[in-house]
Amino acid sequence: MKDTAISVLKILEEASGPVSGERIAEQLGITRSAVWKQIRELRKLGYRISSSRAEGYRLEAATSRLLPYEIQKKLRTQVIGRQIRHFDRTASTSWIGKRLAGETDPEQLHGLVIIAEEQTGGVGRLGRAWVSPAGGIWATIVLKPRIPLDNLFMITMAGAIAIARAIRKEYNISALIKWPNDIFIGDKKVAGLLLELAAEADTVHYALLGIGIDANISLADLPSDLQKTITSLKDEVGHEVDRVALLARILREFELRYRQLEDGEYDSIIREWKTLSLTLEHRVVIKTINKTFEGEAIDIDRHGALIIRKDNGEVERVISGDCFQF
């Protein structure tokens, strides 16, 4: 959104009633024709603005799109989300993050949030396609971690906690975390995360935390095989949710936990993750690249590995793999 459009929008937001085009033009030092042009742009962005020759313009409703201006009004963070890039449609917010990190010093991008209204090539764990239609929250957070390499997986843990906490606080829904990176409501997935690292030796150049949330998507638009395992927040609460408010809260919750990681408060993150776990104390099937086995999920260690007690009494540490619960 251009600065002039934001200025017009602020005048309408602060007004107690209709505002004439002439008054807006005088306040901003532009022509009435330029005011009309900005009003048209705001309408295209989803703002509902009524107009009357006698009274002028009135803002009836804000946009539902995840525009930087709207998110930052509710953000109240120091780093995460202070920079935002918004796209109507893109292949992948992660791909944009990689391109930007290759063109710019990642230090300058730290905390940048890249948002798309729709992704055409979203990718989940193990390169699987992530269906990302309009109505969801599809975002990538660019980070320049100051966290030991062995603890970097805890960025995913912090992100999962942030999403689960935000959903609980916004909608009073019991969202839980399924290891390694999914958020569930009941027995259905509502969100997922993906952490990607650019590193060599002991140096991490940057990290990308991808977030996908089925907020206001229509389940009927998903492939039939996914409709049985996925839910949306809209379906859970019975109406469309305020995506702007939800994403702003997620970013606030994430910044809080990310600071804990930077301060070395790893035990605090692990304890909170455990209180929100859907996986611990449940019987699971683990599938890794090399093998498949069953057992009870009994713990998670400080590196994010799941600890499984197998039927023969052996205890196995799982760093990565698919987890299926009974």
Rank of each mutant, 00 (worst) to 15 (best):
Q72M: 11
D105A: 09
W36K: 11
Q38H: 15
R40M: 13
A34I: 02
Y47D: 04
E55W: 08
V79F: 07
K73P: 13
L45V: 00
L112Q: 08
D150Q: 14
L67G: 06
Q119F: 09
T93P: 05
P68S: 06
E117C: 04
T140E: 07
H110K: 09
P148D: 13
T104I: 14
T63V: 02
P145H: 10
L100G: 01
V113M: 13
I141H: 09
E118N: 07
S50D: 11
E60I: 14
R43V: 09
V79C: 04
R48W: 01
L109M: 12
A139R: 06
L152T: 14
L152E: 03
W95E: 12
R89A: 09
E41I: 14
W130S: 11
Y57W: 10
I141G: 01
T93C: 05
G111H: 06
K73R: 15
S52R: 10
Q78P: 00
T140R: 10
W130E: 11
V35M: 12
G97Q: 05
S33F: 11
R85D: 12
G81P: 03
W130N: 11
V131A: 06
I147D: 05
R76E: 15
E60W: 04
R125E: 14
I115R: 01
T63P: 08
A129Y: 07
P145S: 13
I137A: 02
